[in-house]
């Protein structure tokens, strides 16, 4: 594997730092602003970018990311155009890993082979398909592997040991641990539960482990970062986008991500 994800985590490890992995939905607040927003995230201290591919039926997402998805779809954003946005981002950033996150059907509609090929062409590094567990990922996995794109898998508090082993065999890049039972942006996370679960994950997973769902502020990000290799912040950033105007969005999101970065670097 190339790959930007591994290089990034290797470098962070040498520096004894934790990865900050922000999530934004492609095309929110507008397709014109997405690339600038991604550069802003990187400038503010993001290490890996998770870029949401909008879907009409985002079953695993809470209201905040649902609304972002709806806004983007209304503006005509599609998987095709998201890939175009990544290509545009890559013109000025050749090093920051980009992971596409979304649901399987838009990829199914394009076809996995063409999708994986396009990902490789535009510089996508990983793909996380929320509703494709390992059991249903054989085809997807094969095509992604062929084009050197990392399949990113979720693990959850409910995941059994046998399934952790299965994911350990298939996953590349990093593994995303969903810190709570629920949809994105819900509830507050239970640090002690994460602390208890991580050794079980580490027994099988040799890749970096990112933790996300329910990380809403710098203090929580810092506390979670102590336990793992990276923190994913999604709904909180999307909320900031929702509460901004097009004129203020880059500054406001940049300030939030800087705050998270500073907290992580103290952990």
């Amino acid at each position: 594997m190339s790959n930007r994800i591994q290089a990034t985590f290797d470098q962070l490890k040498q520096q004894n730092r934790k990865a900050l992995i922000p999530f934004v939905t492609a095309g929110d607040p507008s397709p014109e602003l997405t690339v600038a927003l991604l550069h802003t995230l990187v400038a503010a201290g993001a290490d890996v970018l998770e870029l949401g591919v909008p879907f009409s039926d985002p079953m695993a997402d809470g209201p905040t990311i649902q609304r972002a998805s709806e806004r983007a779809l209304k503006l005509g954003v599609s998987l095709r155009s998201v890939l175009g946005l990544v290509a545009e981002f890559r013109q000025q950033d050749a090093t920051t890993p980009v992971v596409l996150m979304g649901y399987g059907n838009p990829i199914e509609a394009m076809g996995w082979e063409l999708f994986a090929q396009r990902c490789s062409d535009v510089g996508v590094d990983g793909v996380l398909t929320v509703d494709f567990p390992p059991e249903e990922s054989h085809d997807a996995f094969e095509h992604l592997q062929r084009h050197n794109i990392a399949p990113i898998f979720l693990l959850a508090p409910t995941t059994t040991e046998a399934r952790i082993e299965q994911v350990a065999r298939l996953a590349r890049g990093y593994v995303y641990y969903v810190s709570l039972k629920g949809v994105t942006g819900s509830g507050s996370i239970d640090l002690s539960a994460i602390e208890q679960k991580l050794p079980q994950l580490r027994r099988h997973i040799k890749l970096p482990i990112g933790v996300g769902f329910g990380i809403r502020d710098a203090a929580t990000a810092k506390a979670v970062a102590r336990l793992c290799d990276g923190v994913v912040v999604g709904s909180r950033i999307v909320e900031e986008i929702e509460n901004s105007t097009e004129a203020t969005v880059l500054d406001k999101v940049g300030a939030l991500v800087k705050e998270l970065r500073a907290a992580l670097d103290q952990s």
Binding site: G104, P133, L154, T158
Partner: peptide
């Protein structure tokens, strides 16, 4: 045994629900 009706069916759910 894996819940497929030929090419149809399956178990396409987020990880949290798979054990359920």
């Amino acid at each position: 045994s894996t819940g497929h009706f030929g090419q149809f069916g399956g178990m396409y759910m987020a990880e949290t629900l798979i054990p359920a």
